[in-house]
Amino acid sequence: MMRADNLRRKMPWERRWVSPVLLLLLWQAGSSIGAIPARILASPVSVLGELGSMLGSGALAHHLMVSLLRVALGLAIGVGSGTALGLLAGLSRTGDAAIDPLVQIKRTIPVVALTPLFIVWFGIGEATKIGLIAFATAFPVYLNLHQGIRGVDRRLLDAARSFGLSRLQLVWHVVLPGALPSLLVGLRYALSVAVLMLVIAEQVNATSGLGYLINDARETMRTDIIVVCLMIYALLGLGGDWLVRSIEARALAWRPALLEA
């Protein structure tokens, strides 16, 4: 019975791509017959057309590069400082006592709520945008790395110690590789937080970037441009995920789940 069920050809409506495509068709149909006015939501066809012309004019590439640069700089600072703090707190008691309470206090405040303060401190230019991304991405990296270092298998540490490894060798050969899976989880969070913060930061007086495109399109009720930008945000999220996955495939090749795949 089970076997027959598994072998039976899937009916068209059992496939997973059916409902998204159906929604898209309904959307297009609604737009075509005028049930969904363009000022509410542009039709899929006009969104594609707008995407084509934005690609052709180079406008999309320009604004995307501006946004990507903000994300890259913010991530570099955020991931860098999160890693440094995580190492300090994870590897030394003094570091832990000094850093961890501050991070735990900060954790209670959503970073988005700090936007006004950042604007007061850093103005409405690039510094605030990059600073917000950096600040927000440091925490997932710190928290996961800290936890990863603390969670390294004591039995492996004991074994390595019994072979006379120095403290530095223990950190290099046992602690850091042991904490790497957690660090990569932190990195994955950081990438999605970075896109989130990019959206918020670019609402602040941007003159270029994806956020600027969206704001500008809102003024002129160009819902097609807005939808194009939403698609780009989604692609950014997917790209980040792909990046971490490919890092994991290389760095964690020893894990059984990846070995079997």
Binding site: R155, L156, A160, F163, P177, W254
Partner: peptide, 20 residues
């Protein structure tokens, strides 16, 4: 030699043998 071998999973067998 420990009951649970305690090889470092992220090092290949030969690297475990010459650990340190």
């Amino acid at each position: 030699v420990f009951q649970d071998a305690r090889l470092l999973p992220w090092k290949r067998v030969w690297q475990n043998v010459v650990l340190g």
